[in-house]
Each structure stands twice: as C-alpha cells, then as structure tokens.
Design a protein around this nucleic acid. Structure first.
Length: 264
DNA sequence: ATGTCAGCGACACGCTGA
C-alpha cells in the first residue's frame, strides 16, 4: 500500500496540482493538511473521479485536514482526545481548530495532522502547540494496539534534529527546533511509535518544506517538518519512503512537498 | 530585503497566518 502526506496550502488553489499528483503517484491513501476551506467545500467529485473517497475536517480559511482513500475509509474520527483550543486575540471563545482527522484504510489506522505552528517560543500559540502535542500523544496511546498497523502522518511543524533545518544557526530563539517541541516527539516514542525516515531525491537531508520567499527552494534552504510515525505493526511493513521534492517545483506549487511511504 | 503565497471582506489592497 502507498500512503502519503502533503500540506497543500489551500486545496482549491492546489487542485490542478493535486489531481495531477494523484494520477501520477497513485497513492492508496493521502493525508492532506492546510485545506483552507470548509469541509463541505472540499472538491469531493474531482477526487472521486480518480477513485478516492474523502473524509474532510475543515471550517474555513485556516487549517483543515483530510484523508483521501481508495483502500476504504472507516471509523472516521475528527479531533483529538481532549484537544485544546486556541484563544486568538480577537475571539472570546476558544476555537476548536480542525487539525486532526483519523480513518481506518485497508486495515491501517491513519491520522492526518496539522500541528500548530507556535509562532515564537513563549507565545500563547507555542504553549497551545505543546498542549496540542500532549493531546496527540494521549490520543495515540488510547488507540494503539500491538496488532493493528497505526500511523501518524502530517505537518508536525517540528524539525526532529538540528540537521533537519538548512542552517541551525538561523533558528536561534525560533520554534520548530526547541527542546520542548522535540520532547513532545520523544513522548510519541514512549507510547511505541517510531519515525519512518524518508529518502531524499536530491541532496542529503530529505527536507519537506521550503519558504516561498527568497529563493529558498533553489538554494535548498528547507526544513524537514512533515513526518510519519508508526507502531511496529506499521513500520515493520515499510518497504520504501521518499520525499517527492519534484512536486515543490514549477508553478502553482505548495511550499511543502509530499512524503510517500510504501508498505509491503 | 519584511524578498511569497493564500483567503477574506469587499471590489483595492491591507490584514492575518504561515
């Protein structure tokens, strides 16, 4: 089975590229992040023509996640166990943001995740990010069994090591590289999840994100922040994994590249 | 270079978020 994850930075802006990529890469399951549309605005018919069912979780202009599958789409779950909200400056109520959705596809329990950015260390959004990651750990712990293949895929907005950013010296006092964020990744290990490390198609580190600005992509100033974690039942079946950096090229591209995992 | 995108409200472009 081929399972992939891709932060598309607006599914409507990315629709032509998404349909092309589905047709060429032919994943059985695709986790999407940053839909930037409401669930009922997802282009269900367009992907159905390529054989995909859709479970989407979105509310509007920010966030939004989905799972596309042609291997079945059962037991859909939206949101995390005790998922924290984020109180934005202009909102009185805590917003329950659409950042997590799960489904069982071909016997594999799959989560599509869009971890909060954090903005800057110490910011309320950073504290929200850490609370959100703890809810993710608790949700995984609740769902995990030894027998069922289980995988978390998505934009984690964390670089696991200093090598996973183009120049660690540029990330002093930045999010994505702090000890607390990396401790949250380590906590996923404590519940039995390990990372699937992808091949790079070019250069040494398989970056998954490059800023749109300042020629970051041609200069390979990237970050490896789109990650895949699985339990042993999942990772033991992994035959290959790679970052499709070619999808970051050209016109109408996302700022993230898809991460592909092939299982036996 | 605070250098690029995307969506929104409102119909030009500033704001927010990344």
């Amino acid at each position: 089975m081929r399972i992939a994850t891709w932060n598309v930075n607006s599914v409507s802006a990315r629709l032509p590229r998404l349909l092309e990529w589905l047709s060429s890469a032919r994943p059985d399951v695709l986790c999407l992040q940053e839909l930037k549309c409401a669930a009922d605005a997802f282009p269900v018919e367009e992907v159905a023509e390529l054989g995909y069912e859709v479970a989407a979780h979105g509310t509007g202009r920010w966030n939004g996640v989905a799972i596309l599958s042609k291997a079945g789409l059962d037991d859909v779950r939206r949101g995390l166990l005790d998922q924290p909200g984020y109180q934005s400056q202009d909102a009185l109520l805590e917003a329950d943001e659409p950042r997590a959705i799960a489904a069982t596809c071909g016997g594999v329990r799959v989560w599509s995740l869009y971890v909060p950015n954090g903005r800057e260390p110490g910011h309320a959004h950073y504290k929200y990010k850490l609370r959100w990651l703890e809810a993710l750990r608790a949700t995984a712990a609740e769902e995990l069994t030894a027998e069922r293949p289980f995988a978390l895929l998505g934009d984690f907005n964390i670089a696991p090591t200093d090598s996973d950013v183009w120049d660690i010296a540029k990330f002093h006092d930045s999010t994505h590289v702090t000890d607390a964020e990396r401790a949250a990744l380590a906590a996923l290990g404590e519940v039995g999840l390990t990372e699937v490390y992808p091949r790079a198609l070019k250069y040494d580190i398989p970056f998954t994100y490059w800023d749109y600005r300042a020629l970051a992509f041609p200069q390979n100033r990237g970050m490896r922040i789109d990650l895949v974690y699985g339990n042993d039942s999942f990772t033991s079946t992994v035959a290959d994994s790679y970052v499709d950096r070619n999808e970051r090229k050209g016109k109408g591209q996302s700022d993230h590249a898809p991460v592909v995992v092939d299982t036996a």
